[in-house]
Design a protein around this nucleic acid. Structure first.
Lengths: 260, 260
DNA sequence: AAGGTGGTTCCAAATTTTGGAACCTTGTCC
DNA sequence: GGACAAGGTTCCAAAATTTGGAACCACCTT
């Protein structure tokens, strides 16, 4: 599927860091010849996966992506359940909640539940982050086999924030700690000044896995507030595991806190 | 681009009426042979445009569509759309444009689009003004229920400029006139010597509402220029309503002009 | 066992794709 | 006006990919 593969390669050039691209951008990023690029962009534009600004000539994701994206897991029971419970936790704690999924060694935020706290962590859904550097990301990785983790982490270990695991050995130590203690937490990692706690949840029926986290400002959140978040997430995790048939060892059933 | 075209054909089978599809569904909907369908679905799954529920075997839009759709949405939200259109109107008319939202009985200016006219109305974003005394403010109020309007206007009617409605009865008369004629316009109200015309726009999807206005100096703007502004805003309103799914009666679809 | 669903693989013919070269349009600068 | 750059488009022959029918597979139900 060479044409399709090439088209997808172009689609993957778009990100929140690069929401729109020029003809030359696409050429540089993909390394494809001018004529191939021209034909591919035209095909993508004609089918609705890309659209082009008439003035700037720049390309961006088109309406079809929006229409399809809205359908993505719109009727996912696991996510709906988790989101309902998370809303209550965020209403009580005032902090912002996230639901994310793993893709490779990265995670993608699917849902955000705003808190009432005036100091707000702002991150749009759809954002991609190394799962190695987030609380819920690490919680999800800890639920995988070591082989699976090894296969996901790039051979060239990604450059991560200072407080995140700096190599595979450190990562595995962190993950084993999460497996042992049930605690996944971090501060000043993927976002400076922001801490979070999270856990992973699996559907016993489908095997689907999501990572749930609550984040807050490190400086503005007291130790007792953090302890409260821990208790809230522990209760939430236990409730959701019962609801979804998430089989997990009791020894790691406690809340896993992490960065985010 | 036959493979790409066929893949897109499959993607277009998904809708909110059919958020996920089985192998047989796809075959029936596209009429493609089994082997082609199998290869196409596999390619779409491998590239992230579709994902497959491991339990039910059904296909649905994949993570990549979610991510790209979010990028599309970020570009195409209500305010961004309105601002882009307003820029063109202001470029053509030369006057200053405003986008505001309602907060209680007041409006808050979110965006300002400068015109080229040397006589310029200057108002900073974030400014609060009684919506009762502005063209776009009154246009937005006219879109609310009478109970909502009543709940927003303080029990002690606010002191307003001379040409603005001086009591609740006069306000309702003005709003009903806007509802009837679709015209919301004023002069010498919130700013002495300044007139404006505006309309309200609602997102069919989210219910979010904004008020859009173009303002000008009353003395320096001829009647034919004002008529031109009216035509420009009417065309802009119609276009935006189509784009946003703003359902409004045809009888009030004409431009509403107001003070500002 | 028969039948159905959800696929996968093989194969030769048909179709599409590819990249380099030549070309086009529009705009900017000297 | 000429030169250059950005953003493309079209042509062409060789290479690559795609196609649909047939055969096959795994699993489930009656």
């Amino acid at each position: 599927m060479s044409a399709l593969t090439n088209a997808i390669e172009i689609l993957r050039c778009f990100s929140s860091a690069r929401p729109d691209l020029s003809f030359a951008d696409v050429m540089a990023l993909t390394g494809k010849p001018k004529s191939s690029t021209s034909r591919l962009l035209r095909a993508l534009r004609d089918c609705g996966l890309l659209e082009q600004d008439p003035h700037s000539r720049r390309y961006r994701p088109g309406l079809l992506t929006f229409e399809l994206g809205r359908l993505h897991r719109a009727h996912d029971d696991l996510i709906s359940m988790a989101e309902r419970e998370l809303r209550e936790v965020c209403a009580r704690t005032g902090h912002t909640g996230y639901i994310a999924v793993l893709d490779g060694y990265e995670q993608v935020v699917l849902r955000i539940v705003p808190g009432s706290n005036p100091l707000r962590v702002v991150n749009p859904p759809g954002q991609r982050t190394p799962a190695l550097a987030t609380s819920n990301g690490r919680a999800m990785l800890a639920r995988l086999s070591d082989e699976d983790i090894r296969a996901r982490v790039p051979a060239t270990y990604p450059k991560l924030p200072r407080n995140s695991p700096q190599n595979f050995k450190q990562l595995m130590a962190r993950l084993n700690e999460i497996r042992r203690t049930g605690a996944s937490e971090a501060a000043d990692e993927s976002i400076e000044g922001v801490g979070s706690q999270g856990f992973a949840l699996k559907s016993g029926e489908t095997g689907e896995m999501i990572g749930i986290a609550v984040s807050y400002s490190v400086q503005a959140t007291t130790a007792s507030e953090r302890a409260n978040v821990r208790r809230e997430l522990a209760a939430m995790a236990e409730k959701l595991r019962r609801m979804t048939g998430d089989l997990i060892d009791q020894s790691v059933a406690r809340v896993q806190a992490g960065p985010r």
